[in-house]
Design a protein around this nucleic acid. Structure first.
Lengths: 113, 113
DNA sequence: ATATTATTTCACCATATGGCTAATTAACTG
DNA sequence: CAGTTAATTAGCCATATGGTGAAATAATAT
């Protein structure tokens, strides 16, 4: 509901690296270290570190301490908030598909008009 | 599915002015002009014009021409794409609520353990 | 032709973002 | 203690973002 929260959430999601990191974390129960998260990307470790900081400040991930590792864990709570916000538009995009359906129907059965 | 599309969509949603504009357009069947869209905001017309350009380039709105007005219309198609992306995490946040539920249950019925 | 209304473009400014390398901190290991 | 591994911080750069006021464009109205 809070505008700032949605700002941070959507801004955090507006980057392919960060979305990939979230996807990776979604498929792991355990916390995942930075090296491991960074491996698939053609970018430096500090760059990934920055992305993680963005995700952390947006409260989309949390980080622990385990020896010299900082394992990251997905925090899906605010994803739910973002989903809730978008869901308010669901009836609009479904309505639009209904309209498209009737257009297609007319194209196939022009005698209907 | 396209990463760039999600980039643009989420980036466009990461601003309260733009989300408010979308909300306004969602509640109107007719196209809405720029002056009218700008009215609620404490910012200049060029600023609103810029926001509209962001929304247009993200294909979240389309714009027509009607005399000297450029009526804006909501295009919900890519909102659906964004919703689809987030939905893949639904089971995660619901699982988390399940865990919270069982925690609350334990707090209320400690004899269960 | 001139004026009015709606909207955009231009030129500017401050701040944020995403990337880099090099240096630093933190924790473990020999 | 010295060395190794993990990660962050610092300093830098290029580009993007969100705002401004002033000027330009587009269409209508007088």
């Amino acid at each position: 509901m809070d505008a700032q929260v949605l700002d941070q959430t959507f801004a955090a999601l507006a980057d392919p690296t960060r979305r990939a990191i979230l996807a990776r974390l979604a498929s792991e129960k355990r916390g995942v270290g930075v090296m491991e998260l960074a491996a698939p990307f053609a970018m430096s470790l500090p760059a990934v570190s920055k992305h993680l900081k963005v995700l952390e400040r947006a409260n989309l991930i949390s980080r622990g301490r385990e020896a010299q590792w900082r394992p990251c864990t997905l925090e899906p709570r605010l994803l739910k908030e973002a989903a809730n916000w978008i869901e308010r538009y669901r009836e609009l995009w479904e309505e639009r598909f209904d309209q498209l359906d009737s257009v297609l129907e007319q194209l196939q059965n022009p005698q209907d008009n």
